[in-house]
Design a protein around this nucleic acid. Sequence first.
DNA 1: GGAGTATGTTTAAACGTTTAACCTATTATA
DNA 2: TATAATAGGTTAAACGTTTAAACATACTCC
Lengths: 333, 333
Amino acid sequence: MKKKVSIKDIAAYVGVSTALVSYVLNNKKEGRISKEVAAKIKKAALDLNYQPNQIARSLKSQKSLTIGLIVADIANPYSSQIARIIEDEAQRNGYSVIFGSSDESAEKTQDLIMLLLNRQVDGFIIALPEHTEEQVHYLKRLGVPFVLIDRYYPAIPTNYVAIDNYEAAGKAIRHLIENGRKRIGVVSYQTSLFHLNERVKGATDLLEDKSLVGEVRIDHIYEDVSNVVNRFLSQPNPVDAIFFTTNLLSVSGLKCINEKGIRIPEQLAIVGFDETDSFDLFYAPVTYVRQPMAELGKASVKLLLNAIENNDAIETINLDAELIIRNSSVISK
Amino acid sequence: MKKKVSIKDIAAYVGVSTALVSYVLNNKKEGRISKEVAAKIKKAALDLNYQPNQIARSLKSQKSLTIGLIVADIANPYSSQIARIIEDEAQRNGYSVIFGSSDESAEKTQDLIMLLLNRQVDGFIIALPEHTEEQVHYLKRLGVPFVLIDRYYPAIPTNYVAIDNYEAAGKAIRHLIENGRKRIGVVSYQTSLFHLNERVKGATDLLEDKSLVGEVRIDHIYEDVSNVVNRFLSQPNPVDAIFFTTNLLSVSGLKCINEKGIRIPEQLAIVGFDETDSFDLFYAPVTYVRQPMAELGKASVKLLLNAIENNDAIETINLDAELIIRNSSVISK
DNA sequence: GGAGTATGTTTAAACGTTTAACCTATTATA
DNA sequence: TATAATAGGTTAAACGTTTAAACATACTCC
């Protein structure tokens, strides 16, 4: 790689000091610099194709203008959609984004935090895995600005942006009840994650039979979903609706329902959580809870930039989710 | 944010020079440093929770250990899957990844290149949009290490990693022909992108009627796909198979085929390009060309690291794609 | 007892910027 | 005419590392 042009090269080229070059290129001390010299410097910068070295700037200013984004897996559509919004918002504010995937592991999360701290990120946006209370406390202790997204610990005061999962699940269940469903099953992960358990709680609080909850191991999704669905359908009084609390669960669930040849929505109504292409392609397009992705992403960046500037106040944002009603839950006349 | 601990703090704490601290923490001059002092320094680093400042290191070493990744849209599953592989490979080699989405725009690509150059990335992995020959020449002129992924200009010698799109499309068409399809339609974008046109060429070179090609405007996907499909099916001698050359085209196509109530595969065989969840959920799981994502990602990082070290030789890698055959193209007995 | 060689540590410059403080010549003011 | 203000610059230090070179001190060898 060719040697890059520095402010020093420009200074030598024009025959002035580096300080003057810096002042001109940053439009500082405007009144105090002669038009001619300023013009010469600007021309030289252009001629030599000068590009400021952000690393040097960062070292001096103690701001890297970089945000660290930690998600479970950037390959997951939920994560990558959010990442895209965050990228755009960050860029509009002069920030870049370095990302890392935690694979839902607390240790990897810690490693990524360290790695990104070494790289002097100005702050973090993090979708936390389970069992990361320690990491949150660590960040608080260091005083690093950070915003949690999607997942947070209600007992630990932090900046966060999330949806009201309890209410979102409520919307789904109320919709099913209004459409005449009597026995509603809920499929969720076996997890301690607050946001997922809120979804279950929001659902079961509206149900008479609270035993119709299936917990799926995250590393045996298809197998467990299949078992749960079987259980729901094979009991004396089978369910007439299923609420899946995540994307992956819905997709798995639909696959296995498809294989069994169960008719949707006549025999069974379905509501999912989060969008997927596949919901459109399913013969009965799937009703689902839609999170306001753009708002989540934008708000998280906004809160983070606030935190970077202020340092003090804690801000939390709870957004509403929307129920997108389609054929999988409504019997058309 | 609290002041971070620097090497200077450790030096003061232990009562030695910063140089010594640096030598110890980097395990340099091993033989020449007394065990006791080394131990003291290491303990101090731990006690004070020292984290090296990668920015300062980069400035000194002129290596940022950062890769710039430019894709069309990180929210697109193809991009984010690749991003994930690249993230992992980069991390295994001590590199971080800063990403940017070009939205298939040449200007945005140029902006991102500039931005990331300012941030002193050591090299680029780029999936180019149309009309970016200039950008490629710019990068070559600067001598910045870079690797093109998925898309490249055959006329411009550069490092690249891609699949053999011509052959991949050939596999799809041969499969359809072998399964008795006589009139095969091809749906692609109206584009100058080499890799997509290779797919069309690979298909039509095997077809008798080369007029059955539909070009879809990228900003009117659903509308145009719908028209093309209509045209294919409503002519005197309608098509009995359609090959979609991209993911988005397949999904759009299937949606509209679904709406028309066309029976797959009896009435119409379908082959897509790239994987989607939705292909599983479709009542007739979709046959598709599978790109070796992991290999693409890994190879791109490998080539880039080579380029960063060597600077000279140009390396190109063409990988084979695989046809995943399922129900949408085969009539089961 | 002086040269040579280990051993252990420090000094200082450098990476590319930014920026407070300083300098000098010219012009305005009293 | 002396002095202050202004215009237009430069100097030098700093950010946190790394690292070649210099410096001390002790030990070895004939």
